[in-house]
Amino acid sequence: MGMPRLAAALRGLAVTAATLVCVAALPSGAQAQQPQGNPASGQASPTKDPKAPKEFVALRDVDPTIRQEIRYYTPHNFMGVPVTGYEKPMCLLTRDAANALHRAQVSFLKKGYTLKVYDCYRPQRAVNHFVEWAKDLDDQRMKGEFYPQVDKSTLFQDGYIAEKSGHSRGSTVDLTLAKLPALPTRPYVPGEPLHPCYGPQDDRFPDNSLDMGTGFDCFDTLAHTLDPRVKGEQRKNRLLLKAGLEKAGFVNYEYEWWHYTFQPETFPDTYFDFPISRRSLAGRH
C-alpha cells in the first residue's frame, strides 16, 4: 500500500495494542473507560478524548469555598514535571463525593478551618505516566523531598506506585486542612533546594495547611495516618481531618493521612481516562 495508508494502518494498530494492554492490566471484574486516540500523549482532542459521565462534576461548582492546590498540574510533585492528563488545575469528582466534601467543609468552616484538595479524579493516563517514571531509575530529581529514604527501584513492591489507582474511579480525594484565614502557598520553583517531606514543618516546603507531620505525597512510613511516632499537635490535626471526613462518609487509606474515598463509590469497578478539564464535562451538565 502507499505510504499514507501504511502510516494510518500502523497508527491504528498502535492504538489497538495500547487499548488491549490497558484492559489486560485491570483487576478482575473491573472495567476501563476505553480511551480514544493516544492516552499517553497528554494531548487533548475535543473529538477523540473520552468525556466524563453525567455523574461527574467540578468541585468548584458544588463548593467554591474548598481550596484547591492541584499538585499534579504543576512540577511540584514526586516526578518533578506536570502530569499527563492534568490539562487544568481543577478537581473533578463524582457528585456523591463532591456533595459529601461540601458537608464536611460546612462543618470545618464552623470551627475556623477549610479543606484543601491536592488531587481528586486522576485519569488512567496520569497513572500510566507514574508507572513509566517509576521504571526510569535515572530520574530522581525530586528524591530529596518526596522519597529521601526509599530506593526508587522498590516503589512498586513497597506499594507507593501501582498500575491502577482508586482516584481513577472518581470518588477518592487527597486533601488536608488549613486554618482560616489561609494565605496561598507560594509556587515551587524547579531546581530550588529540596527538603525532606518528613522533616519539621519549618524545614519542609512551605504549605498553608495544618502540620500533619509530613508533607503531601511523602513516600515514608511517617505518612501512615496513625503512625505512633506522630504525636502531639500533628496527631491531633490528623485526627481532626479524619473525624470530620468520616462523619461525611469518607474512609481513610491507612498508609496515607491525606487519602480518603467516599463510600459507597459511584463507580466501584470503572477506571476512567478522560482528561481533567472543563471540556470533559461539556454537554453533560
Rank of each mutant, 00 (worst) to 15 (best):
G2D: 07
M3C: 05
L6F: 09
L6D: 07
A8M: 02
L10T: 06
R11N: 07
R11G: 12
V15D: 00
A17F: 09
T19I: 12
V23K: 14
V23T: 13
A25Y: 06
L26F: 06
S28N: 04
A30H: 14
Q31R: 15
Q33Y: 10
G37I: 03
P39G: 07
A40W: 09
G42P: 11
A44Y: 09
P50V: 02
K54I: 13
E55K: 14
F56P: 09
A58W: 07
T65H: 09
I66K: 02
I66P: 00
Q68E: 10
Y73H: 06
F78L: 07
F78G: 00
M79A: 03
E87G: 00
M90L: 15
C91A: 11
L93G: 05
R95C: 03
A97K: 03
A98M: 12
Q105C: 10
L109A: 14
K110A: 15
D119W: 01
Y121T: 09
R122D: 02
R122M: 02
A126T: 11
H129M: 04
F130Q: 01
F130I: 00
E132L: 10
W133S: 04
A134C: 09
A134I: 06
K135S: 01
K143F: 02
E145I: 11
F146T: 13
F146E: 03
Q149C: 02
S153K: 13
Y160D: 01
E163A: 03
E163F: 06
S165T: 09
D174H: 11
T176A: 14
A178G: 03
L180D: 02
L180S: 01
L180E: 09
T185V: 11
T185S: 15
P187L: 11
E192S: 14
G199R: 06
P200Q: 13
R204E: 14
D207M: 13
D207R: 07
S209C: 03
D211R: 04
T214G: 02
G215F: 11
D217M: 14
F219Y: 14
H224L: 06
L226Y: 09
K231Q: 15
N237C: 01
L241S: 11
K242R: 15
A243E: 15
K247E: 15
E254Q: 04
W257D: 01
Q263P: 00
T266G: 04
T266W: 11
F267L: 10
T270Q: 10
D273Y: 06
P275R: 05
S277A: 15
G283R: 11
G283H: 10
